[in-house]
């Protein structure tokens, strides 16, 4: 499957810029995204390849502009909806409730 994720040999992407003494997670939400993704993997509703494919289905420009855990969050949300465990509406509603209570 060709897509933005198939990066081997692509040019024009700039320097690698490794970060010195990089922390395991950069933001608190990254920890939560990691943990819920791994925990949901144990539900047995999908395997690793399906999880990857969910991330790879991001539109190309979005895939390239997203960080690793943004892709994870996107992929997890897609799989949960596709497997009927959550609905898009309830995710949207909860996000809007949370944005009101946060501000």
């Amino acid at each position: 499957m060709k897509g933005a994720h198939d990066l081997g040999g692509k040019t024009g992407l700039g320097p690698i810029a490794p970060e010195k003494d990089e922390p395991v997670f950069h933001r608190e939400w990254e920890k939560r995204a990691f943990a819920i993704t791994v925990a949901c993997g144990f539900l047995g509703e999908w395997n690793l390849d399906m999880a990857r494919y969910a991330r790879e289905r991001m539109p190309d420009p979005e895939y390239l502009a997203s960080t690793y855990y943004e892709k994870w969050a996107h992929g997890l949300s897609l799989l949960l909806v596709e497997k009927g465990l959550l609905t898009e509406e309830e995710i949207r509603e909860r996000m809007s409730e949370l944005s009101k209570s946060d501000s």
Binding site: R27, W29, I36, L76, S77, L86, I91, M95, L98
Partner: peptide
């Protein structure tokens, strides 16, 4: 994305 992750975690 922060909101999305929070929403997913609380629903799950």
């Amino acid at each position: 994305v922060e909101l999305k992750v929070k929403a997913l975690e609380s629903l799950l």
